[in-house]
Simulated scan of single mutants.
Amino acid sequence: MKTLVEDTTETYAPHIIIVGGTSGLGLALALHHQALGWQVSVVGSSATKIADINSQYPSIVTYACDLTDDTQIKKLLEKLSRIRFNRLIYSAGSYTNERIHHLNKADSDQMLAINLQAFEQVLRWASSQLKQQYQSLDASKSDKPSIVCIASIAGTMDYPYASLYAKSKRAMIATASAYRAALVPHDIQVNCIASGYIDTQALRDLNDGDASHKPFIMSTQTAVHHIMQAIDDDVELAIFPRSMRYITSALNHLPKPVLNWILRSKLDKAR
Results as ranks from 00 to 15, higher is better:
75 K>G: 10
42 V>A: 01
76 L>G: 13
54 N>P: 00
105 K>H: 15
89 I>R: 09
61 V>R: 04
65 C>P: 09
28 A>G: 06
55 S>Y: 13
98 E>M: 05
107 D>G: 10
33 H>S: 15
28 A>H: 02
92 A>D: 07
37 G>I: 06
83 I>M: 04
27 L>N: 04
54 N>K: 04
76 L>V: 10
89 I>C: 08
47 A>W: 02
28 A>R: 08
92 A>L: 03
74 K>A: 13
97 N>G: 10
50 I>M: 02
96 T>V: 14
35 A>N: 12
37 G>V: 09
104 N>Y: 02
76 L>F: 05
83 I>V: 04
39 Q>L: 14
40 V>Y: 00
43 V>C: 05
109 D>T: 11
90 Y>A: 14
43 V>P: 05
60 I>G: 00
81 S>N: 15
57 Y>L: 06
110 Q>N: 12
103 L>S: 06
107 D>Q: 15
86 N>M: 08
26 G>K: 08
109 D>F: 10
106 A>Q: 10
100 I>T: 11
103 L>D: 05
40 V>I: 06
47 A>Q: 14
94 S>N: 10
105 K>V: 15
66 D>G: 07
53 I>Y: 01
77 L>M: 11
88 L>I: 14
96 T>K: 11
41 S>W: 03
81 S>D: 07
31 L>G: 01
99 R>S: 15
113 A>E: 12
91 S>E: 07
74 K>E: 13
73 I>D: 05
108 S>L: 08
84 R>V: 05
63 Y>H: 11
46 S>E: 13
49 K>S: 12
40 V>H: 00
58 P>E: 10
105 K>A: 13
37 G>P: 02
68 T>E: 05
107 D>P: 05
75 K>D: 14
48 T>N: 15
101 H>M: 13
62 T>Q: 05
39 Q>H: 11
26 G>W: 08
61 V>P: 00
52 D>C: 09
68 T>I: 07
67 L>G: 09
45 S>R: 15
98 E>Y: 05
32 H>V: 07
64 A>Y: 02
72 Q>D: 08
104 N>I: 11
47 A>N: 07
61 V>D: 00
34 Q>T: 01
112 L>I: 12
67 L>V: 12
59 S>K: 11
67 L>N: 04
60 I>E: 01
32 H>T: 09
63 Y>P: 05
81 S>G: 06
75 K>P: 12
65 C>T: 14
86 N>V: 03
28 A>W: 01
43 V>N: 01
110 Q>R: 13
80 L>C: 03
93 G>F: 09
36 L>C: 13
45 S>K: 09
34 Q>G: 03
100 I>E: 13
97 N>I: 03
102 H>R: 11
82 R>K: 13
96 T>F: 04
78 E>K: 03
50 I>S: 02
